[in-house]
Design a protein around this nucleic acid. Sequence first.
DNA 1: ATCGATTCCGCAATCGGTTGCGGGTTCGAT
DNA 2: ATCGAACCCGCAACCGATTGCGGAATCGAT
Lengths: 337, 337
Amino acid sequence: MKPTHITIKDIAKMLGVSPSTVSRALKDHPDISEETRNLVKTFAEKVKYRPNALALSLRKQKTNTLGLIVPEIVHHFFSSVISGMEDLAYGEGYTMMICQSNENFYREVINLQALLDHRVDGLLVSISKTTREFNHLHNALDSGIPMVFFDRICDELDTDRVITDDFEGARIATTHLIETGCRKILHLAAPRHLLIGKNRYEGYAQALKNHKIPLDESLVLKCDTREEVMSMRQHILTLAPQIDGIFGVNDSTAIAVMQVLQENGYRIPQDISVVGFGDGPIATIASPPLTTVEQKGYEMGREAVRLLIQRLENPSAMINNQTKIITPSLVRRKTSR
Amino acid sequence: MKPTHITIKDIAKMLGVSPSTVSRALKDHPDISEETRNLVKTFAEKVKYRPNALALSLRKQKTNTLGLIVPEIVHHFFSSVISGMEDLAYGEGYTMMICQSNENFYREVINLQALLDHRVDGLLVSISKTTREFNHLHNALDSGIPMVFFDRICDELDTDRVITDDFEGARIATTHLIETGCRKILHLAAPRHLLIGKNRYEGYAQALKNHKIPLDESLVLKCDTREEVMSMRQHILTLAPQIDGIFGVNDSTAIAVMQVLQENGYRIPQDISVVGFGDGPIATIASPPLTTVEQKGYEMGREAVRLLIQRLENPSAMINNQTKIITPSLVRRKTSR
DNA sequence: ATCGATTCCGCAATCGGTTGCGGGTTCGAT
DNA sequence: ATCGAACCCGCAACCGATTGCGGAATCGAT
């Protein structure tokens, strides 16, 4: 802050009035005569006066800053979320202070402390994978700061939340496969102890049930990374002749399995249809382009900020905590009929 | 900021001393007796006192905050850059205020103003595509605030800079093709009026020259998006029989051209080798995985912050502006021999 | 008892802006 | 001439910290 900004006192001195008068003139306080007001305003304009946000925050006890803790910025989903948050926040006159925990509990605690030190008005949090203990968040909450969890929520804490409807996304994907003629659908699943693994599996199961297709557990494989697909290729190829569709728990496994099949003479989607679950732009560059479920990170970001600001601007209203569910939507491309 | 944080005055009152004493005790000022110091320190610890960063910034005329303006957060390259910046900045005791211009000049101006209003200590900027006029940046610079450009630099402004060595990256990529046996190398290029188009083309040309391979302009195609590859597929296929290597100006065109060739019976890399220029994780999921030039966004981010902090902490030293060049490196995968 | 030197701590100003309250000036009315 | 009401504006406190300076208390020395 070497650059010496012009202050209200500078203006006051140069105009021979008091700082109070300058302050009031600039904000059209009725106590100030029109003459003085114009004088101050035009002069302030001329010298490009800009109020010091720090001083304002200190005085008003409000920083107009939102604190964000996110596991990793370098993730298409999270960067979309940030983008959505940023757009809405700036539109509403808030700025953002962004921290990444790098999936590290200790850094999450440090980050939270830094945000609180800066007196952010509210918190947006997606917890790290290594966070098993929530005292830091609990304390913040108890101290009264508004907080919204998104995507990686914390069950123990009663706050506003924004989450993806994984169940519904999986149901939509599987239903799409069924409606385009598939009957024997392989599900490449994440571990059942992870929420997304559980919810997407159940969505898959529900779609089958709705269409009276029996659920065959031998068609549900724990396999949620590209590497895992590669190491299970033999097993997948033995299954291949008896299936006509695949629902992958994420795009990279869907694309990987597609490649394995193609290398072995299967045509996509003529022989087997494939649907993924969106985690980025890779779906569009797959060959053929992958039909997938879009996660709407940008929208989730906007929604989280909307909830937070709503709470900030109605501090009195004891609104019940809301859980906003973002329903993902199917993007039909070329790997399904 | 509804939560009522505990202040130095609160502590003073409860301990029956003056705020000055508390302040000094907390920072081991010799004027304070050991007895008082311990009293204050243990009490402060007990009530979890944390200094108000706003008040400190106002008083010290230093915010320990770095302002960032980036075109788009949702871009693997830029989010890597941000990640690198964030990691180093927090490690050095700085926080970051992040704005995205969305490639919009007007928003860039607004963002800059917001950052200056918040009295950030320094600026990290990558200019938007639509920015043709630099008064806003010029004014900031004139007012004396340290600024570092990265990736999308502004030639007219004399500042520290961090850029990718596109020429060298292209030279390395092309050389790799030559050294693995290619002689007729197609270059899918960006427009020559863009810096990356020009520099990567020249790197390509230099590599050929170094190996005494004549440059054939009919093997340089202006074609830098996936869509463009698709619309030029016929032309590319007529060229295909006479070439043995392709250098794509970015990964998505490299992958696209690879797919076109594969669909027409060419084997990669047996018949034709392909090398891209890195813009994300898509290279690894291509089939076969794409050999490409890695852009090192994370490192660029760290380097930019390093330059900025260096200037902030040696305000007196009239260091000459530096241009830090990040040399990208080749990542050999399976599309080249 | 008085003085000088230490030791330890508080007053008050400052950073930049906001705001309750009180006061001076001008005016018309009586 | 006197009073009261508008009309304008400044004083000072405040937000939470820091810091130069001065001063009270204590001690030993003369």
